[in-house]
Amino acid sequence: MRRSLASAVALAASALLLIGCTSAPSSAGPSTAHTATPSPTPSATAEIEPQVVVSLDGIAVTDESGTRRADFADLDAFLNLVGEVAGGLPEPEKVEDPPGYEFKMVNYTWDGLKVFTNTAHDAPASVAITGPSLNGVPIMTEEGVAVGSTREELIDAGAWALDDAEDPRTAEFVGVGGREAPGTKSLTHPGSVGIIFTLVWFDGDVVKQIQVPSNDYSDI
């Protein structure tokens, strides 16, 4: 799935920056004696590796206590969960509005993650993954893409160029995944339903930043 989104993405990116074993069958014949065979001792449970996974809907935090989720649409729950991982909630930073717009947006910024929302907390959040980990916990997309991933890894994950005229092997921005957003209209493909997707920003052939969710139906 490819969309021509280069100009819209440039504006959006600018705003967000401001923002056990199985036994083999026995071949022995019948025996007149039956000896009880002890059950194999279960192997120790594999150690759970903590991680934060960002999807188009929100985040999932996995650690030794299990997996906890929060959606972008439930902003307070989302911020609380991120704060649990990050060790606290920072003061929001006012985002300068682009010329001609008045959004009253703020960023919550940690080393590795930036959350972008409005001052009233009545709109869904979006995020920019800016580092490979959040408070030492690896952070990635549901496709396994992280800051520091290579372009080849993105190609293997199905990355597509935002502009049909570009090649994902050389483009500065690519999309990963994506799904239709019912009730929206694509600004880049008139007559088509809009889509939401994961936006990946390269520095050469290495992932510099990941923005989730991005879309092709908002003008910023």
Results as ranks from 00 to 15, higher is better:
residue 38 P to S: 13
residue 183 G to P: 07
residue 150 T to W: 03
residue 99 P to C: 01
residue 79 L to R: 13
residue 190 P to H: 06
residue 173 F to K: 05
residue 10 A to R: 14
residue 16 L to I: 15
residue 151 R to L: 03
residue 136 G to H: 03
residue 207 V to P: 09
residue 99 P to K: 13
residue 141 T to D: 06
residue 51 Q to S: 15
residue 43 S to G: 15
residue 44 A to R: 10
residue 172 E to A: 13
residue 50 P to D: 06
residue 163 D to F: 00
residue 197 F to C: 05
residue 44 A to D: 02
residue 46 A to K: 11
residue 67 T to E: 13
residue 14 S to A: 15
residue 75 L to P: 08
residue 166 E to P: 00
residue 87 G to S: 05
residue 142 E to D: 15
residue 114 K to C: 08
residue 132 P to D: 14
residue 43 S to P: 00
residue 182 P to F: 02
residue 211 Q to W: 07
residue 174 V to S: 08
residue 50 P to L: 08
residue 5 L to D: 06
residue 105 M to K: 13
residue 181 A to V: 14
residue 145 V to R: 02
residue 31 S to G: 15
residue 194 G to K: 03
residue 50 P to T: 09
residue 204 G to M: 10
residue 91 E to P: 00
residue 38 P to H: 10
residue 149 S to C: 07
residue 150 T to I: 04
residue 194 G to Q: 04
residue 135 N to G: 03
residue 54 V to I: 15
residue 13 A to E: 13
residue 215 N to T: 03
residue 113 L to C: 11
residue 129 I to Y: 05
residue 25 P to M: 03
residue 184 T to H: 03
residue 98 P to C: 09
residue 59 I to A: 14
residue 137 V to W: 01
residue 62 T to E: 11
residue 83 G to A: 15
residue 203 D to F: 00
residue 102 E to V: 12
residue 50 P to K: 08
residue 207 V to D: 08
residue 1 M to R: 09
residue 29 G to D: 07
residue 171 A to E: 03
residue 115 V to F: 08
residue 101 Y to I: 02
residue 108 Y to M: 07
residue 98 P to S: 10
residue 172 E to T: 15
residue 157 A to H: 02
residue 204 G to F: 10
residue 203 D to G: 14
residue 104 K to T: 09
